[in-house]
Simulated assay, not measured.
Amino acid sequence: MKSYNNILVINLMHIGDLMLVTPVLRTLRVNYPKGRISLLVDKKLADLVINNKWIDECLLIDKKGKDNRLPAFIRYIMRVRRKKYDLVINLHRNERASALAAFSGAKKIVGYSKPGFSLFFSKTMQNPSVAHHIGHGPFHLFPPYEYVPGWKHQVHAHLDVLKEALGVEQIDDGGLEMWLAPKDIATADRLWQDSFPPDTRVVAFNIGASWITKRWLDSYFAKCADELLARGYGVAFFGGSMDREIVEKCISQMQEKDSPLVKVFTGKLSLGELGAALRKCALFLTTDSGPMHIGVSQNVPVVTMFGASPVPGFYPYDARAVLIKAPVECHPCGIHKCPLAGEENMACMKMITPEVVMKYVWELLGKYENSAGNMPREYGAYECRVIEVKAGD
């Protein structure tokens, strides 16, 4: 295996995508202990990786701000070139990341790439975790397109880049990792002290998701919250500012909505504060979302419901986690808005009832509720349990 002294890893996508890169950073450090390892990410996601102990530097690009226009983006590429990297690893196949890698000036460039930019790569690879849309006719160029979901977890796909493109043999997969800043831990401590009585066991809720087809019904979340509150558990709603409306709608359907044990932190926390707050929770009931992967990084037991999402590519990377899905023919579809009407609309989520979900919530709480904040991690135990609901459940 060739030695590299100055390494750049690029991932400019969303919260979950960035969390799924963290096992690569640990493996790189093991294989290149004397190398300088840098990570290039979207500035708004800095909290997730700025304290990562496996890297030497975190480069931040303001994707939607000052670095968004072409002249600014070219200047940013020149900044990258001045770093004189001898190895660049691109771990997301979009135009911006592909361009940064292609024009980085590095001696070796590997990973995923858009066509055109791939001409500058030493080795490009397909990402088997994401869906592919294959057309018909000559060269598969014509519709209708066949949706082929991913078949390998994103973490494993990334590690394959290291093995196949660089010859890395020693894989050190420590799972998803996020180190918390002391200030974020202190903020979460104050928040908890002000919000919940001592020794309250709190269940975190994240009901939003980037796609509507990833969202479980808000009325179902409301029923789960009521059942937990009736047994003395606290319920903490998380998520971003874009989720406030659906959280309010959910709470309006709760019988126990006026309980002092209902707290709404939606849109009020930074990503670092979110990680610190989730660490205090006994369990995380969540959609397939970025916060789900943050919860996994903080060793919080997860129960999640998958609708449009392909299970193999993005399941919660923890053997304690429970993923529930419905046996509908169109799962997974990868479509952002369900095209079906009537009872068939969002059937993949409607079939996952609150009763089924709470069965596994109570099971995991029975095992782990007293370990909140001190949950051990079992190295290598990352394949979650997948439950497929049956008719009548």
Rank of each mutant, 00 (worst) to 15 (best):
F196N: 07
D194A: 02
A46Y: 06
L91I: 12
D288A: 10
G366T: 10
S219G: 09
N127S: 08
D62A: 10
K43Y: 14
I10K: 12
N68D: 11
D218Y: 07
G373R: 12
H14G: 05
K359R: 14
I185Q: 15
R82M: 13
A236D: 01
L274M: 15
H336P: 00
E177S: 15
N206S: 13
I109F: 01
K359Y: 01
S113W: 06
K390F: 00
V24L: 02
E363D: 09
G208R: 08
L87T: 04
G208H: 05
L228I: 13
N374C: 07
L60V: 11
L48F: 08
I246C: 13
G174I: 07
S122V: 11
C333W: 02
N11T: 08
N206L: 10
V235P: 03
F117A: 12
G16A: 04
K83Q: 15
R96S: 14
L278M: 13
R69L: 12
E388R: 08
Y147M: 15
V41Q: 06
Y360G: 06
P33V: 02
S113G: 11
V24M: 02
V168F: 02
P71M: 12
L39M: 12
A282D: 01
V110R: 06
N345T: 12
D199R: 12
I134R: 08
P182H: 06
K53N: 13
P291E: 08
S113N: 08
W362Q: 15
E329L: 07
D288F: 00
P339D: 13
T213F: 11
F139Y: 13
V235F: 04
D258R: 14
I15E: 00
Y379I: 15
V235D: 05
G275V: 11
D288H: 06
T187W: 02
Y147H: 15
L229Y: 06
D47K: 09
S38T: 11
K43P: 05
A181C: 11
S241D: 15
A72H: 01
N31E: 04
V300W: 09
L141M: 13
I134H: 00
L285H: 08
W211L: 11
T124C: 06
A72C: 10
Y360P: 01
